[in-house]
Write a protein that binds this DNA or RNA. Structure first.
Lengths: 172, 172
DNA sequence: TGGGACATCATGGTATATCATGGGTATTTA
DNA sequence: TAAATACCCATGATATACCATGATGTCCCA
């Protein structure tokens, strides 16, 4: 029987694990950006291994999360194959996991400097259209990095859609 | 001899978990407001010392609840994806989860100071039209923060709607 | 039951720590 | 060796921790 594994963060007593709120920080001429302190706190011990990032497949943004979440995800993927008795899967991947495997290949590790900053890889910054400022967007279990301009457009669209859904009756 | 009297964090005699009643408090020039002691008691079982708040999507108000509820929500969200074997979900978000993800980005953590006050983030205060006074409205499992003026309008509307309903006519 | 002692609360102000940011220099990599 | 990165220290703004006080409410005892 598969065991439920909570605490994917690796540190059960950590008080905070969620990425919430939105912050806009400056990208200096060296390409450095401060990751919001609240996010660094949410990363906990993962902070020593930097953050994992990959280009969003649904828009001009960068997706980010801690190394611990990545490890947990891949371990669960492997476990699922073995538990199912399909050992071939464990070696060649599950057929419906193509997206995950693509993302793994696109992901980068961004280490922190002593002040909690990271350097955005050129490829990711270009994908998100980030130049001199970056908006960090908490999504709960992970976070995103947007260019402020693109993000404000995105956010307005999101809120408008939700508002319509909530106030526009039960009809979809 | 002055005794330290800052033990509002202590467990109440009988555990309280619901937010009820309405309180109006002052917002000082630094944007600080005392959270009603009764609400703090309701949060007392929450090991996280602070509240989470986000702008209501349906009106000029701030929604608030305990940090523990947020952590629980996100932990379940991540686990659900992994347990279901849908690892893509964990990386790019669930397609039907737009509401949660948007709220995460709009939410703020408001930690208590030593006196049980929070600082209303400018963005939230503006959304609710709060300037110098704030009305805390208990809604059971969560609470809301209104500007007193907006709240009295809201309350009158609520009461009027209920009255119309009770006096027979199915008001439009 | 009246009143006083004491605790709690909302509120105000000040000192200190943290954060985001900037720049210089050493160290690695191509 | 040139460019890119890692490491170190500095700084202003801002948020947080700390301390103080008057008012209100509660409890206990005469």
């Amino acid at each position: 029987m598969p065991v439920r594994r909570r605490n994917w963060t690796g540190k059960p007593d950590r008080p905070v694990t969620s990425f919430i709120s939105t912050y806009e920080n400056k990208v200096d001429k060296k390409g450095r950006v401060s990751v919001p302190a609240a996010y660094r706190a949410a990363l906990g011990s993962d902070i020593y291994q930097g953050v994992i990032a990959y280009p969003s497949l649904t828009g001009p943004a960068i997706e980010g999360f801690g190394r611990g979440a990545l490890e947990e995800l891949n371990r669960r993927r492997f476990d699922l194959s073995l538990d199912g008795g399909d050992f071939t899967q464990a070696l060649v991947g599950r057929s419906d996991d193509g997206l995950v495997e693509t993302i793994m290949s696109l992901a980068s590790e961004m280490p922190f400097d002593g002040e909690g900053r990271i350097i955005l890889p050129t490829r990711l910054a270009e994908h998100a259209g980030i130049t001199d400022r970056a908006t960090f967007v908490g999504r709960g279990t992970r976070f995103q990095i947007w260019s402020p301009k693109e993000h404000s457009k995105q956010q307005m669209a999101e809120v408008a859609a939700l508002r319509a859904k909530l106030t526009g009756g039960d009809a979809p």
